[in-house]
Design a protein around this nucleic acid. Structure first.
Lengths: 198, 198
DNA sequence: GAATCTGTCTACCAACTGGTAGACAGATTT
DNA sequence: AAATCTGTCTACCAGTTGGTAGACAGATTC
């Protein structure tokens, strides 16, 4: 059973932290959700910060894996690859909005936790930059600061993932079909933005 | 002095709530920041929820005012107007990232608070939808679901406002000049996206 | 079979939370 | 001059929080 407890805690914590926010979720609540004593939770993760960090590192790792897989499965065209990556990122973000909520909280959390999260993603980011530069030199993607490209991708993902939430916050109830159309359009815009000018 | 205290509390609360998150900021902290006893704070805002709501309503009002002003000052072209609105929204969002953080939290807060915030923005949203429909019929803007347009604008604003934060979270320290370029480009994309197909 | 390790538990605690009760000083009204 | 109102305060409280101390049962090692 042992290891299962850890996994269960991690899963419950991910969902709860993401949905309600790290501060709003007490250790008691997580423990109750998992069906275990709070002390058991503190046995696996010596402090709440440790738990938060573990959750984030796990999320970063899953993200990395998903992105790598997406890159491999896409064909050679850089625009296709970028779209595949964006899709890979927003798929879990849409399915589990918790994740995005958590990642947004990173900058607020203790610096140690934040840095750990960064360092987990750093290699991927570095590889991406190198790749973009290469393809820009080959003229297969619009020449621009990689940060711009990252910014565009990020805007697309957050646009996609938080739209339902935001639309709802001004009183609109979008259907899933409508959301799918929005996503398609946003992706088309991203692609147009990155296509090299002839 | 009287009224000043209220304003001071509101200001401090806006910043603190936005930066650290509503849950993470206690009444004690706000009171200390303002330099006043906690009870004074509870005199002006009978409960923390009341304070949060007041902060949000104020933010929504300021936003509405800024948007209306931007619309009036822009010339007649709908694309210019949309750009003016987006700029009007992201200017305070960039200057005080606190605001965007707060608005993102709305969906998590107590429903009463959220609804109050919505109702404050509703008239503006309705007018915007009507305006977009009118201009689409006149063929001066690409024909699309107003929600898509709202989504694009939102993605642009969040892209613009949270980029520095996000770039920093993967270890990049963008200069203000770089950020300005990113913003210009994002706005150009938004404009391209909304230009009617010939 | 004694000792240790592993994973879980109950019991407890100090610090902090949002909120209440009520005193009090100065201005305003009667 | 008495009464009321306004804005601020100190003192306090009950509930919750993250975290500690230490008991205990079963498996593993010596």
């Amino acid at each position: 059973m042992a290891r299962d407890t850890r996994v269960g805690i991690l899963e419950a914590a991910t969902d709860l932290f993401g949905v309600r926010g790290v501060d709003a979720v007490s250790l008691d609540v997580i423990a109750a959700e998992v069906g275990v004593a709070k002390q058991t939770l503190l046995y696996w993760f010596p402090s709440k910060d440790d738990l938060v960090q573990a959750v984030l590192v796990q999320a970063a790792t899953q993200l990395s894996v998903a992105i790598e897989a997406a890159i491999r499965s896409a064909n050679d065209d850089p625009l296709d690859r970028i779209e595949a990556v964006v899709r890979a990122v927003f798929r879990p973000a849409v399915r589990r909005p918790a994740l995005l909520g958590l990642i947004r909280e990173v900058s607020r959390l203790s610096p140690t936790v934040g840095e750990r999260f960064q360092s987990e993603l750093r290699p991927l980011v570095d590889r991406a930059v190198a790749y973009l530069h290469k393809e820009m030199d080959r003229g297969r993607i619009r020449h621009a600061d990689p940060r711009l490209i990252a910014g565009l991708c990020y805007a697309t993902v957050t646009g996609i993932a938080t739209e339902p939430e935001v639309l709802r916050s001004v009183g609109w109830q979008p259907t899933t079909a409508e959301l799918r159309r929005l996503r398609t359009e946003l992706l088309a815009f991203l692609r147009a933005a990155l296509t090299p000018v002839p």
